[in-house]
């Protein structure tokens, strides 16, 4: 799916190698496949041994994700809709913020290097070297003191910070690849520095921006620990809600969990699919001889 372009001079693999690759791929995909199938099974089908490949699909689990039926027979919302919105909003806004700040910073690091530029970049990278569990206590205390704990702005800022190091490094490497002659040519054509950035550099980097956004989104979308400790009832994200759904009095409801996970997969899949052309297209290819 990701590499449609045929490189001339490189031969396609034969059936034998393609088959081996396919089998290995299936091994990796098997858990995902099991989860998606499980989401459509009733409780009995889901727990059957050996697992059933053929069964009558049911949408009950998906219904249960969003509604609970009380003893009186009323439908009560579970709040999962809100949690999905929270996940999308927190990850989306956090990544967007990280991308905006990260791209500007990367442009600065690439085009206007400071004395000791590499040291600064290294320091930025170190913010991602510590495992989250180590920094969570000071961050938790800071959030308590500032009142950011449990608010949207808090988790969005945290996710922006969480992705900043990565976006700066990624975007800097993309900026470094661009020919500065092109920017100089634009300056000669009479445009100012702001336009050089927006009209010359950024349009050449849509592929880089898309790649950075996808990686950051996937990381943030799956983030659990910060969300567990720093979101409140109203700002809870799906991974946290998922963990809560696991511990019921009647044991783990695998069908319900699978349905949540299946729904949880969709946004990442859609975003990656939409950006796949950007991820592939080398817009700058062949215009500058080096």
């Amino acid at each position: 799916m990701f590499f449609k372009k045929k490189d001339r001079g490189i031969r396609e693999a034969g059936w034998d190698r393609t088959l081996i690759t396919g089998v290995v791929g299936m091994v990796y995909f098997a858990p995902v496949f099991w989860i998606i199938l499980n989401a459509f099974k009733t409780r009995q089908d889901g727990l059957a041994t050996p697992p059933k490949l053929f069964f009558t699909p049911s949408m009950d689990n998906f219904f249960n994700v969003f509604y609970r039926i009380t003893d009186a027979g009323d439908h009560v919302a579970t709040g999962m809709g809100l949690y999905f919105f929270n996940s999308i909003f927190a990850a989306g806004a956090g990544v967007l913020l990280a991308l905006v700040i990260g791209t500007l910073a990367a442009y600065g690091f690439s085009r206007y290097p400071l004395r000791g530029n590499d040291t600064y970049l290294f320091v930025i990278l170190t913010t991602r070297m510590l495992p989250p569990i180590v920094v969570i206590i000071p961050i938790f205390l800071m959030f308590r003191v500032t009142g950011l704990s449990g608010s949207y702005i808090g988790i969005i800022l945290l996710y922006a910070m969480f992705n900043l190091a990565f976006s700066v490094w990624m975007m800097k490497s993309f900026f470094d690849e661009l020919s500065t002659d092109v920017e100089d040519a634009a300056r000669l054509d009479g445009i100012n520095e702001i336009k050089v950035f927006f009209k010359i550099c950024i349009p050449q980097l849509t592929a880089g921006l898309a790649a950075t956004a996808v990686f950051a989104l996937i990381l943030t979308w799956n983030e659990f620990l910060f969300a567990l400790l720093l979101t409140g009832n109203d700002t809870r994200t799906v991974p946290v809600a998922m963990a809560r759904a696991m511990g019921g009095q009647l044991g783990v409801d695998y069908g319900l969990l699978s349905a949540i996970i299946t729904l949880f997969l969709i946004p990442v899949f859609v975003v990656t699919y939409m950006l796949q052309n950007h991820l592939l297209r080398g817009v700058t290819f062949g215009t500058v001889k080096k």
Partner: peptide
């Protein structure tokens, strides 16, 4: 300023705008 000089230059690398 660059734009006030009325000077044009052709670069060794051509430096065309690849996205346009």
């Amino acid at each position: 300023q660059v734009r006030d000089r009325g000077v044009a230059m052709v670069f060794q690398t051509f430096a065309l705008y690849p996205h346009l």
